[in-house]
Design a binder for these strands. Structure first.
Lengths: 230, 230
DNA sequence: GACAAGCAGATTGTCGACAATCTAACAAGA
DNA sequence: TCTTGTTAGATTGTCGACAATCTGCTTGTC
């Protein structure tokens, strides 16, 4: 009889769709940091009433990519160099934990999924789709969190992911350069398949070091000049 | 001229008040795990319309103490032994980071605040106010997070706090025993004032070990018998 | 009696309108 | 000129009603 394992059916509420739409707009940089979200305008554009829109915005406020001031408005969060530095320091520690927990649980399915996600990054890189490249890279990185079998750890990663994606997107958008052609994740994937856990942890730490250093330099540059208004 | 430093004025929206009310009800166990929140009933009891109530509920869903199923309802999260174990494992690591970061930033204000919060715990203990005891103990513990000067770390702690408070409240409520008369935080406070950071980290880890062990035993016991309906 | 179809009743999701509040421009007075 | 009070416009917060969906019961059929 039926061995089919169905995935959860799609969210059927407008609210959920609005959350997805807004999140995407923020993470791809369509909505800039500091920008105010005008409820009436957005609800008219989306052809929705303000109620589900406002509920969606509350979710994103709690997710940490919007911030709300009563009677003043809801804004996309500003990104400071310290924010990035904080996220970076924190991520170092959680990465270590995630690898430690996921390590003994690695199996064939893990390795297959690892390859699959790695392939997705490479494909996005070849296609020069920077947005998708950031997205897939974070998904590749997220596998150890999904495999660590710790709900709090996973949840924390997912929260952090939103902001990291936003940071990287801003960075990419700003420098407007061609994406690196070579594959920087090759070593990471190889180590996760190997036998030396410490080495994997060390590499993860050093790897994100590189990315973050670039980000930090960018953010510090931003903070030199005054932020332009809306 | 004026040297007064004013704290931000109180939240003036119904929504914020509702969030506080609901959170308190959940964290003190007035609303039991698994219980459904009937929007109409609650909004009538609070003399508020459903709009701000629903927005408040979205916030608490993202905070992790409520869970929502479209067209079915919003429920207080169920607490499993694994949830507690996950939170515990995770907290070990973040504690270590928090102490490490806060350590060089300790100053007189830190020590004063430490004493103040310690005193609050002792007072709640003397007054046999278990709810307040849990609350103040977590606030005492949270000081290292506030002092660590890392926004992501602090935010993560605040999210975790909600659930920890809920776990402990359930536990206390269930065993219905007198609270421990002696002060278990004495050593913790002393070590945080001392010179040996490693010792403080070790103690924090072992200290929460004790609390969590009890909690885990309780939660495992719960899962033996089937949960009663609403 | 078992089972499926269909029908209330209750509850959540969404809408449009009104009330409360903020912002910015302008006027009045020291 | 600077400050303070006022006012109009825009925007957010809140409300009550309607639509969509779920649940459990009833009914009819075999």
């Amino acid at each position: 009889m039926g061995k089919a394992d169905f995935s959860p059916i799609a969210d059927t509420t407008r609210r959920a769709e609005i959350v997805a739409l807004l999140r995407r707009a923020i993470l791809t940089g369509q909505l800039e940091p500091g920008q105010k979200l005008n409820e009436l305008r957005i609800s008219e554009q989306m052809r929705v009433s303000r109620a589900p829109l406002r509920e969606a915005m509350r979710e994103l406020v709690q997710e940490g990519i919007l911030t709300s001031i009563p009677y003043a408005g809801t804004f996309v969060i500003e990104v400071t160099a310290k924010d990035i530095d904080d996220a970076y320091s924190f991520n170092k520690v959680t990465d270590e934990l995630a690898i430690e927990r996921a390590w003994p649980l690695r199996d064939q399915r893990f390795f297959d999924e690892l390859d699959r996600r790695h392939e997705a990054v490479k494909q996005a890189t070849r296609a020069l789709d920077t947005t998708r490249q950031i997205e897939t890279a974070l998904q590749l990185h997220g596998l150890i969190y999904e495999w660590a079998d710790n709900s709090v750890l996973l949840e924390t990663w997912q929260r952090l992911t939103s902001r990291l994606q936003m940071y990287f997107a801003l960075h990419q958008q700003a420098r407007n350069e061609a994406v690196p052609a070579e594959d920087v994740h090759e070593t990471y994937v190889r180590l996760l398949k190997g036998k030396d856990m410490r080495a994997a942890q060390r590499h993860a730490r050093e790897h994100i070091d590189l990315d973050f250093e670039e980000l930090l330099a960018y953010a510090r540059g931003l903070e030199q000049r005054p932020s332009k208004g809306i």
